[in-house]
């Protein structure tokens, strides 16, 4: 079976550089999946869960926003942040979630700070849900 070359790179490190069978992630328009033979594709990646399947096993990643490019069965993902499920610090994510929620209650939806806190909350929720899928 043909495979995909997957590279997930953040400003911190190269997180994944592997041959995988399937990749799924979230874009602005909803979830998308990539299988071998996909058309040339360029998309933004939203904060959310990224999954890939390697040797029949599914791996979960909590991703910050970024971009993904698919050319000739090569996937390049450039993400602002990304963590494997088993690396996530659940306590820290809980704290981040609570502080973002508290801050959101105080702020009016029009202030620029609101957006920042909303993003932080989204990231924290993603990390918590991904962490719960740890093998």
């Amino acid at each position: 079976m043909s495979q995909l070359d997957l590279e997930i790179i953040t400003p911190e490190r190269v997180l994944v550089k592997e041959q995988v069978e399937l990749l799924e992630a979230k874009s602005e328009l909803g979830e998308f999946g990539i299988l071998p033979g996909h058309i040339q594709f360029l998309t933004t990646v939203d904060i959310g869960e990224v999954r890939y399947v390697k040797d029949g096993k599914t791996y979960y990643i909590a991703a910050g926003g970024g971009f993904a490019e698919v050319v000739n069965d090569k996937i390049l993902m450039l993400l602002e942040s990304a963590e494997m499920a088993d690396e996530i610090d659940i306590e820290r994510a809980e704290v981040a979630k609570e502080s973002a929620e508290a801050a959101l209650k105080e702020l009016s939806p029009d202030s620029p700070e609101y957006k920042i806190q909303e993003t932080a909350l989204n990231k924290a929720i993603t990390r918590l849900s991904v962490a719960s899928k740890k093998r």
């Binding site: 874009s27 602005e28 328009l29 058309i39 040339q40 594709f41 360029l42 998309t43 933004t44 971009f67």
Partner: peptide, 24 residues
């Protein structure tokens, strides 16, 4: 070679990636 399929749109992607690229 070849063009991409853009999602959500080419304009949006270009507008998002260029500032990111420059600050990087």
């Amino acid at each position: 070679e070849g063009d991409y399929l853009y999602e959500p749109s080419r304009e949006k992607i270009v507008n998002a990636i260029i500032p990111k690229f420059l600050s990087t």
